[in-house]
Write a protein that binds this DNA or RNA. Structure first.
Ligand code: MN
Ligand code: MN
Ligand code: ZN
Ligand code: ZN
Lengths: 157, 157
DNA sequence: CTGTTTAATGAAAACCATTTTCATTAAATA
DNA sequence: TATTTAATGAAAATGGTTTTCATTAAACAG
């Protein structure tokens, strides 16, 4: 059931086929969850959201699909330090500008912030250029994250 | 054998005792390796360097001691994305200014850089303050890292 | 629509860094 | 030197992720 979205057939089908990947029910379900659900889902989170409507999709397929999506650049993979990877669609198909993360080390609440993004991006760009030249690195990505205790966890102390 | 170091007894003994921790042969060996060896050692790296002269020290003790050191703020713990934690003395007892990391995702070569540290620190400080106020977070640490392919890995392609 | 090719899949087992358990050892202190 | 109890090693457990392998089903040609 190739739904339309106001602008042609399901946006990722083309890219998938272009990379030689097949369109399967499991993959449709996984992408569906990533597009609708909240962000920063672990593989297990995705599994739990996919499973009710698709009991046939196993956790292994979740992992395999997420890896493909990360390699294709459609999904970001993050490590917030709690021992499990988190995934987030690069483009929420709408809003969702580039942002960085603020992580509560107590409850793992994660806040997307964009407040200082522009300055950060600018500095990052400069730094990247300088480092590339000086060390001959081909820089492909960066991480900026802040860790601390969220307001909720501070109260319940 | 409490060696001297130009300025009193082994520098960390006091802090250790102050925290109620005992000074043991294993811990002396581990600190010794951290002080002498190159940086960014994994727990296993430390084990391999400690073992020859101290076959009695097990990997478990390496992990336990490193955790204590991290909690005491004497050692930094890093995750460069290869599935194992890396440890680095906060103060190499000499030089070693605050620095950030450039990581090759192919060979895991890690470069400490300080080129843009001042600007980065400044921006980080501003951002931290802004985020603290806006989101009520008590921020305790940050991560900035660049990932890419080092010059060596680019050639051997 | 049907048959063929082979990527995709699920279940179970394997992986592997790190943590936990528990009986034993030894640092600190009186 | 005796006492207390933190520290320790070996082995088992943990837990997220990956691999294995036999089975299923997209994709596509006819
Ligand atoms: Mn986010
Ligand atoms: Mn370093
Ligand atoms: Zn919290
Ligand atoms: Zn490299």
């Amino acid at each position: 059931m190739p739904r339309r979205d106001g602008a042609g057939p399901v946006w990722w089908h083309g890219r998938f086929r272009g990379c030689g990947y097949r369109i399967t029910a499991g993959r449709e379900a996984i992408l569906g969850v990533l597009m609708i659900a909240e962000k920063h889902l672990s593989a297990e989170d995705v599994y739990n959201k996919v499973h009710p409507a698709n009991p046939a999709v196993g956790l292994t397929t979740i992992y395999r699909t997420l890896e493909i999506l990360v390699n294709m650049g459609l999904v970001f993979k993050f490590d917030f330090g709690d021992g499990r990877a988190r995934y987030e669609l690069v483009e929420g198909s709408k809003k969702s500008h580039h942002h960085h993360h603020l992580v509560c080390t107590k409850c793992m609440r994660i806040i997307d912030y964009t407040e200082f993004i522009n300055e950060e991006i600018e500095l990052l760009k400069t730094t990247e250029k300088g480092l590339s030249k000086k060390y001959g690195f081909d820089i492909t990505s960066h991480i900026i994250q802040f860790y601390g205790i969220c307001s909720v966890c501070q109260k319940g102390n």
